Computed example of a mutant assay.
Amino acid sequence: MSNSLITGLHHITAMASDPQRNLDFYAGLLGLRLVKKTINFDAPDVYHLYYGDETGKAGSIMTFFPFGASPYRGRQGTGQAATTSFSIPVNALDFWQKRFDQFQVSYKAPQTRFNEVVIYFEDPDGLGLELVANDADTRPPFTYGHIPAEVAIRGFWGSELWETSYEKTEALLTQHLGYEFIGEAGVRRRYLPKSVDSAEKGNEAGNFVDILWDSTQRYGVGGIGTVHHIAFDTPTDETQKGVREILLSKGFMPTEVLDRQYFHSIYFREPGGVLFEIATNPPGFTFDETIENLGTGLKLPPWQEKNRDQIEKHLAPISLEKSVEAYRVG
């Protein structure tokens, strides 16, 4: 398989409850940019909120389906992409601990893992998150957000897959998705796309996939507070077709290509049960908004425009200005 078919992580999608509370946490507290406000194409009465860096580059995008007061609470466990890690500079550690203290966000004391310093915390719905402090990530942050640029989140560091064993998932990653095994710490095994030039500083950030394997861990249950799927980035429709053909030839069952407006997607289950997506880089989030106006309007796919009045009537109003003001630095 050509190393260029998969270039790293594209986005991670999770399920949340209240949409304003979700916006408050990710755009307000964490200072991520609201890159796109749209709907769940498969459930148009539910928002689909995208957060990321200034331009919504692959490897920075965390997305949510906020279902409101849903009774379907999830439980983290095996068969899930359980913890999502964000990258921050080493000199930002003190800032973020003080910020969590200020806004009463519980977190674990910093731990060292590989050459990283890691702070674990959870969002209001219990979704597992980390800040990984490192000096390797040279990606620019959201430069005109309310978090000072020198301490702002750069994007993803990586994602954790919780599995009962690692062998079959590792085989998928390394033999068919262009990843390679690069390190081990206890039950944690780390992978990086072969297409990433490790000699070029900063390219590794946002692309790590870690398998944590434990045969005694209970299985996860999908629902509020859990990751729905993890998406890998592919450059074009043609490279996506190449990945799909490989998956079919190896006995996997990827979906047909689905138009998600800002990217094209195929989905399939990896051997441990985690839902994987392969998403194209284009068209991108400037498909229907300029960079300056990303996230400012409710964007609907063309086939739903005729239903705009009804859709807007059923969506709870949310305010980015309220989120930023509530968590403004200083």
Rank of each mutant, 00 (worst) to 15 (best):
residue 5 L to Y: 06
residue 11 H to E: 05
residue 14 A to D: 04
residue 16 A to K: 00
residue 19 P to K: 01
residue 26 Y to K: 01
residue 33 R to L: 00
residue 34 L to Y: 11
residue 36 K to W: 07
residue 38 T to R: 03
residue 39 I to L: 01
residue 42 D to L: 08
residue 44 P to H: 10
residue 45 D to Y: 08
residue 45 D to I: 14
residue 45 D to M: 15
residue 48 H to P: 05
residue 48 H to Q: 08
residue 48 H to F: 06
residue 50 Y to R: 09
residue 54 E to K: 05
residue 59 G to H: 07
residue 67 F to V: 06
residue 67 F to G: 03
residue 67 F to T: 09
residue 67 F to D: 07
residue 68 G to L: 09
residue 68 G to F: 02
residue 71 P to Y: 10
residue 72 Y to E: 15
residue 72 Y to F: 14
residue 74 G to A: 03
residue 75 R to F: 13
residue 77 G to W: 06
residue 79 G to R: 06
residue 79 G to T: 08
residue 81 A to D: 09
residue 82 A to N: 11
residue 83 T to A: 09
residue 83 T to G: 13
residue 84 T to K: 03
residue 88 I to A: 14
residue 88 I to C: 10
residue 89 P to R: 04
residue 91 N to S: 12
residue 91 N to E: 12
residue 93 L to Y: 12
residue 97 Q to R: 10
residue 100 F to W: 09
residue 102 Q to Y: 11
residue 103 F to H: 00
residue 104 Q to D: 15
residue 105 V to E: 04
residue 110 P to Y: 08
residue 111 Q to E: 15
residue 112 T to E: 14
residue 112 T to L: 14
residue 114 F to T: 11
residue 116 E to R: 05
residue 119 I to P: 02
residue 122 E to C: 10
residue 127 L to C: 10
residue 128 G to W: 14
residue 131 L to V: 02
residue 132 V to K: 04
residue 134 N to T: 12
residue 135 D to P: 09
residue 139 R to E: 11
residue 141 P to E: 04
residue 144 Y to Q: 15
residue 144 Y to A: 15
residue 145 G to K: 01
residue 146 H to S: 07
residue 149 A to G: 09
residue 152 A to M: 02
residue 153 I to N: 01
residue 155 G to F: 01
residue 155 G to I: 00
residue 155 G to L: 01
residue 157 W to T: 13
residue 163 E to W: 07
residue 164 T to P: 04
residue 165 S to F: 09
residue 167 E to D: 14
residue 171 A to L: 04
residue 173 L to H: 01
residue 174 T to Y: 02
residue 179 Y to Q: 08
residue 180 E to Y: 06
residue 181 F to A: 09
residue 181 F to P: 07
residue 185 A to M: 13
residue 186 G to T: 10
residue 187 V to G: 14
residue 193 P to L: 01
residue 194 K to V: 05
residue 198 S to L: 14
residue 209 V to I: 13
residue 212 L to P: 08
residue 213 W to I: 13
residue 213 W to C: 11
residue 221 V to I: 15
residue 224 I to S: 07
residue 224 I to K: 13
residue 229 H to E: 01
residue 229 H to K: 07
residue 231 A to D: 01
residue 234 T to Y: 01
residue 236 T to E: 00
residue 240 Q to W: 01
residue 243 V to I: 12
residue 245 E to P: 06
residue 247 L to K: 03
residue 248 L to N: 08
residue 248 L to P: 10
residue 249 S to N: 10
residue 249 S to D: 04
residue 257 V to P: 02
residue 257 V to Q: 03
residue 259 D to R: 10
residue 260 R to M: 03
residue 264 H to I: 10
residue 264 H to S: 03
residue 268 F to A: 00
residue 268 F to P: 07
residue 269 R to H: 15
residue 270 E to V: 08
residue 273 G to N: 05
residue 277 E to F: 01
residue 279 A to M: 02
residue 279 A to D: 06
residue 286 T to W: 09
residue 287 F to K: 12
residue 287 F to R: 11
residue 287 F to G: 14
residue 288 D to E: 06
residue 292 E to F: 14
residue 293 N to W: 07
residue 294 L to W: 05
residue 298 L to D: 02
residue 301 P to M: 07
residue 301 P to V: 08
residue 318 I to V: 11
residue 320 L to Y: 02
residue 320 L to P: 10
residue 325 E to A: 12
residue 327 Y to V: 08
residue 329 V to W: 11
residue 330 G to M: 12
